[in-house]
Design a protein around this nucleic acid. Structure first.
Length: 580
RNA sequence: GGACGCGUGGCCUAGCCAGGAUAGGGCGAGAGGUUCCUAACCUCUAGAUCGCGGGUUCAAAUCCCGUCGCGUCCGCCA
């Protein structure tokens, strides 16, 4: 509803500007401070100062006068306060918000008829997902959900790097070593099984003599050439090994509600000839040149050239990624890729090259995030240093289970929780806390992992917001009301109006989070909504309201809150428990 | 050395891109609150020269320049 109000104000400002014969592209719309009755404000008076040659206060008064001659649907009053122009929402603004928020899909925006491919995670299929890269699926999945809610058709893709040196190394190690030479199996799942070969292979390479290493490297290079030339036997092994690992990774990611529509294999572009064709096209470009048998491409920004063909004739990661991006550009209107900040350089070269090939790189957006590091440094699958996401989840769920039982005892009002409920709540809360903890922070900020931070159920965290949903459900159980009979003007206390106002902001928040590709805005919103609800909850007893009409109106408000909070949480992949 | 990102009370964090009304939260500290719909809650108090120095502007946490600290990258790796 805030979206509607904003566009109403924008239209009015456009008219006012043309009346005054002024050209303004920014009306300075902002959110006023909390204690003000208005929910939307404009500082346009400052912006008109020069042209009007009047003080901002005078301009504000003049504009208010002009605005007051207009008829608004969602605004009851326009007034100036100093240089600011404030807009007070109308009764209709609130009643329509209350009505719209009764829908399960409240916040869902109109279909845009455009497709977005969101590529995220795309971790090398060499071992279990560790916490260092866990931001990727969490950010990527949240962005996917937000874009879908904002009206795009979204396709979630995992790009499988099943070619290149690390996979060749993996295949080599899998052939070379036997079970007896490996570390103990930590978890009976494909990714945990096969990563042992990868780690064994890498430690072997590190520890071996120069001569031994050279020999091994020749063997690995040979496997790589076989992959590139489309050798059927090697390809079969490659698919079998990477599928086994991917199966495990999928299981792990499913635990945090991350799923994909498609897994796109790098080798697909090798096998269908796209890579060879791409190499030929790149060679034709102006900046392409051969050096020491390898092919390179000069970048427009004069940074280091892109090497797109090794001297042994095999392709490189970026060469294949070019094919993948062209393929995506042909399939979708927009492309979003979630990448670790260590990929910035490569991603820049990729965009440069795509544009040199004449592709519409403005349809591509990249989201970068910093790694989650250990206090002593980065996490690495190859070296086997790092916290596995599975272990973090296990620990978080255990901790949540402990909290459920602990809090159950200290409560005044007892809720009957079965063992099934306790397990369910522990899982929802434990996973929610992790997803929330990771998505709440701006992706650009670095995170140093600590068990204490990762497992803390802080007030501003997931459980706090999930608790709001549980409270709503508790109130609504066995209660009936018909939204058509509700008189929303009965919701007139500050607490009720604040809450309703917050609910009205959801579509706007979703729209801006989608535009900015910033899921943490949803968390910020959910925290505010939760806080408003808890104040309302304390101050306005619902089921003990003054009369049946008030009770019904408040029930509708609770139902609206329930939809708003559960949809907000859904957008960042957090489940909404019916009880806690 | 160059490029990019980050720097907000003891700790974590929103706001920065599109500059405007006393910098919003949380943790931790202190004080209160439950005969009442789940206290994983609410209320109050203390605590910030928004890394530092310049500049632009009527107005700077926000934009520009410089500087310091931390991180990442600058591979015929991915």
């Amino acid at each position: 509803m805030l979206l509607a109000m904003r566009s109403e104000v924008e239209n009015a400002f456009e008219q006012v500007c043309s009346q005054l014969d002024l050209q303004m592209d920014d009306f300075g719309l902002e959110e006023p401070p909390e204690e003000i009755e208005a929910i939307l404000a404009s500082n346009i008076a400052y912006r008109m100062q020069k042209e009007m040659e009047k003080s901002p206060v005078e301009i504000a008064d003049l504009i208010v006068e002009l605005l007051n001659s207009k008829v608004f649907k969602y605004i009851s009053r326009v007034y100036s306060e100093g240089p600011y122009i404030n807009f007070v929402p109308s009764e209709r603004y609130f009643s329509e918000t209350l009505e719209k928020a009764q829908e399960d899909d409240y916040g869902q925006l109109e279909r845009k008829g455009e497709t977005v491919i969101v590529e995220h995670t795309s971790a090398n299929p060499t071992g279990p997902v560790h916490v260092g890269r866990a931001r990727n699926p969490i950010i990527g999945d949240s962005i996917s959900r937000i874009l879908a809610f904002a009206g795009y058709h979204v396709e979630k893709q995992y790009y499988v790097n099943d070619s290149g040196k690390q996979v060749a190394t993996l295949i080599w190690a899998f052939e070379k070593f036997d079970e007896g030479e490996l570390t103990e199996l930590k978890k009976n799942r494909g990714d945990y099984d096969i990563v042992r070969y990868y780690q064994r292979g890498n430690s072997y390479l590190e520890a071996s003599s120069v001569e031994e290493r050279k020999k091994s490297e020749v063997e690995i290079a040979h496997i790589l050439e076989q992959i590139e030339s489309g050798d059927v036997e090697v390809y079969k092994k490659l698919v079998s090994i990477t599928d086994t690992i991917l199966g495990g990774m999928k299981d792990c990611l499913n635990r945090i509600s991350v799923e994909f529509d498609e897994f796109v294999r790098e080798t697909m572009f090798i096998r269908d000839g796209s890579v060879d064709e791409m190499v030929e096209r790149l060679k034709e470009l102006d900046g392409a040149f051969e050096e020491d048998g390898a092919w390179k491409l000069r970048m427009r920004n004069e940074e280091k050239p892109l090497v797109f063909l090794r001297s042994d004739g095999t392709s490189l990661y970026t060469t294949r990624d070019l094919c993948y991006h062209e393929w995506k550009l042909n399939k979708a209107d927009h492309i979003v890729t979630i990448l670790g900040e260590d990929h910035k350089f490569q991603a820049g070269q990729l965009i440069n090259t795509l544009s040199m090939l004449g592709m519409e790189t403005n349809r591509i957006r990249q989201v970068f995030y910093s790694w989650v590091n250990l206090p002593e440094g980065g996490m690495s699958t190859r070296k086997g240093t790092g916290i596995n996401l599975d272990d973090l989840l296990d620990e978080s769920i255990n901790r949540a289970a402990h909290e459920v039982t602990r809090r159950e005892k200290s409560r005044i009002r007892k809720v009957e929780l079965t063992e099934y409920d306790v397990n369910r709540i522990a899982r929802q809360v434990g996973v929610g806390a992790i997803r929330c903890g990771i998505v709440a922070t701006q992706p650009g900020k670095g995170i140093t992992f600590s068990w204490e931070d990762a497992l803390s159920f802080e007030r501003q965290g997931g459980p706090y917001m999930q608790y709001v949903h549980a409270r709503c459900c508790g109130i609504l159980t066995n209660q009936k009301f018909d939204i058509k009979d509700i008189d929303s003007s009965l919701l007139n206390s500050k607490e009720e109006l604040d809450l309703l106002h917050e609910i009205s902001r959801l579509p706007f928040v979703i729209s801006s989070a989608a535009d900015a590709l910033e899921p943490h805005r949803i968390i910020t919103y959910s925290q505010r909504l939760s806080e408003k609800f808890n104040v309302f909850y304390r101050e306005c007893p619902v089921l003990k309201g003054a009369n049946p009409e008030v009770i019904s109106a408040r029930l509708a408000l609770v139902a609206a809150t329930k939809n708003a909070i559960s949809n907000s949480l859904y957008l960042v992949g957090i489940e909404s428990p019916d009880s806690m």
